[in-house]
């Protein structure tokens, strides 16, 4: 059985501070990490591998620094890694990356299952999974928490409303895994060494994928960033317990804290 997991990379939030007052992000340490939700996806794939025979392949598209993310994924347990990168791919947007990944996955071929993190932490982008499923023409389940396989049938527990649903899906299929669905394993010490010293990441460029700069032209335009209002401390609510309670609950709801 062949499982493919796309991997994305984000700026490590531990390395920057957001200043609403300056409407700026101060980067203290520019480090990139695997999108945490993609680690949840990889964990689902690796636990399927633990439970039976499976080959887990990771793939990433965009900037060359994704090489580190792929090696980390191999250190966690992936068997092979593909990096789609060149000058054109490095400049495209999430839609272009999706296009490249779809072609890369087709080029790898013969897959039974694709497991994707539902969204990215940095831009809340939740497009990739279902978009790929449509491109590849496979069945799809979202909000996945757990998966197991027996007799070629995939059994999945997915989020559903305030509860969950158990569903069955025939292969080939694509799962998008809910963020926080599991606790991803740590990369293994020995595999970390091997990932950099022994194992290869296979690299394909846009030409290998049959893509041109025009195919990958961004479909969106960045319009900068918006910042929440600066935090003010020390506000007091006054009135009867009922009044202050009502006011508090309203404030919490308005701020979407509850």
């Amino acid at each position: 059985m062949r499982i493919i997991v796309p991997i994305r990379q984000i700026l490590d939030p531990r390395g920057f501070t957001v200043s609403p007052r300056h409407e700026r992000i101060f980067i203290n340490r520019e480090e990139y990490i695997i999108n945490p939700n993609d680690k949840n996806a990889l964990e689902v794939a690796l636990s399927l591998k633990d439970a039976g025979e499976a080959e887990v392949i990771v793939i990433a598209g965009g900037q060359a620094r994704l090489d580190d993310a792929l090696r980390e994924a191999m250190a966690m347990g992936a068997d092979a890694a593909y990096l789609l990168t060149d000058e054109v791919l490095a400049k495209t947007d999430a839609a272009g990356v999706a296009e490249a990944l779809a072609r890369g996955i087709e080029k790898i071929g013969d897959f039974d299952l694709i497991v994707v993190g539902q969204e990215t932490l940095d831009t809340a982008d939740a497009q990739l999974g279902p978009w790929l499923a449509e491109y590849l023409g496979v069945a799809q389940v979202g909000g996945v928490r757990q998966a197991s396989i027996s007799d070629g049938v995939l059994r999945v527990r997915r989020n559903w409303g305030a509860g969950y649903a158990e569903v069955e899906v025939a292969l080939p299929a694509l799962l998008t895994v809910a963020s926080g669905a599991n606790k991803p394993r740590y990369p293994h010490g020995g595999r970390i060494m091997a990932a950099y010293r022994e194992w290869q990441v296979i690299t394909w460029n846009s030409e290998d994928l049959g893509l041109t700069a025009a195919d990958l032209a961004p479909l969106t335009q960045g319009r900068g960033r918006a910042f929440p209002p600066e935090r003010t401390l020390g506000e007091r609510l006054t009135g009867s317990p009922q009044d202050v309670a009502a006011e508090l609950v309203q404030q919490l709801r308005l701020r979407r804290i509850i």
Binding site: Y186, P187, H188, G189, G190, R191, M193
Partner: peptide
């Protein structure tokens, strides 16, 4: 995670990360 044998070569079940690791 291989953290009980960090300096030893991988062929002995270690992490192969040497004294530095």
């Amino acid at each position: 995670l291989g953290l009980m044998g960090v300096p030893f070569p991988r062929k002995y079940g270690g992490s192969g990360a040497g004294e530095t690791g």
